[in-house]
């Protein structure tokens, strides 16, 4: 059996109906486990105090923010090459999820930055890159909203996603370059997660898996909605014709 069978809308609706309760249940379970573990049962960091607890949401959200874009890129490519409607609808469904994750990453980063750096916002390369990513998400969703014909919208947003990805990556390096020019050294780096000790690592991993499952669950729900809305549109059009 080929994986492309799941790109058939009917097959997708059946499979996702079966999988959705499991994924959602598992997502809630892991999210609660990871966050409760992290929030209540890990010690404070000697340097950052209790703010270290923010990494259990900040880091998974940041991972999902970029991960969602890559998923949308893959889905857009599949649509452009193989013309599977479910694929591009999944990309459309994922965009608001990615936007929310980016917002969470930005907000928690800013809230964290306040006591750590003494300011709500710093043009730290990583924060800036997420701000730019946020703009890309906005543009992508705005283009979907603006175009009437669903297939035209699918094609154009996919092309935008492709081109946007290239420019997002260039922006990432441009921002790194730009900020070094201003700050020299990176005292404002948010690299904490790269040397976390085991006490923090385990609940963090659980939280990351939880966010991932939450993403899958939300994308499934939203893709099902998009497929239904396409079918509704088709039925209405047929009724008008008959």
């Amino acid at each position: 059996m080929s994986i492309w069978e799941y790109a058939n809308p009917k097959k997708f609706m059946q499979t996702s109906a079966w999988a959705l309760p499991w994924v959602t249940g598992l997502a809630v379970l892991t999210l609660i486990t990871g966050l409760v573990w992290g929030f209540f049962f890990t010690p404070d960091d000697f340097r950052m105090g209790s703010t270290v607890k923010i990494i259990y949401i900040h880091v998974p959200a940041a991972i999902m923010a970029t991960g969602t874009w890559f998923m949308m890129l893959a889905a857009s490519l599949i649509w452009l090459i193989r013309r599977h409607h479910v694929s591009v609808l999944a990309a459309k469904a994922a965009a608001p999820v990615g936007t929310t994750m980016t917002l969470i990453g930005l907000f928690t980063g800013a809230i964290w930055g306040q006591p750590m750096w003494g300011t709500w916002w710093a043009w730290d390369p990583r924060l800036t890159a997420f701000l730019i990513l946020f703009l890309f998400y906005l543009g992508y969703m705005a283009l979907w909203e603006a175009i009437e014909d669903p297939d035209t919208a699918a094609d154009l947003t996919s092309v935008l996603c492709l081109v946007g990805s290239v420019f997002a990556i260039i922006s990432r390096y441009a921002v790194l370059f730009w900020n070094q020019g201003l700050h020299q050294g990176s005292s404002l780096s948010m690299d904490a997660e790269e040397h976390v000790s085991d006490v923090y690592a385990w609940p963090l991993w659980v939280a990351i898996v939880g966010f991932g499952l939450l993403f899958v669950s939300l994308v499934l729900i939203r893709t099902r909605t998009e497929i239904r809305s396409r079918r509704l549109r088709a039925l209405e059009a047929r009724e008008r014709m008959a």
Binding site: I132, L138, A142, L143, G164, I170, V175
Partner: peptide, 25 residues
């Protein structure tokens, strides 16, 4: 991208400005 849209001007800015960031930097 926006040529077929009735009021594409504002959307055009929203789409293009993020793409302009590296050039500007």
């Amino acid at each position: 991208l926006t040529v077929g849209l009735k009021r594409g001007g504002l959307l055009l800015s929203l789409l293009v400005l993020p793409l302009y960031i590296p050039t500007l930097i």
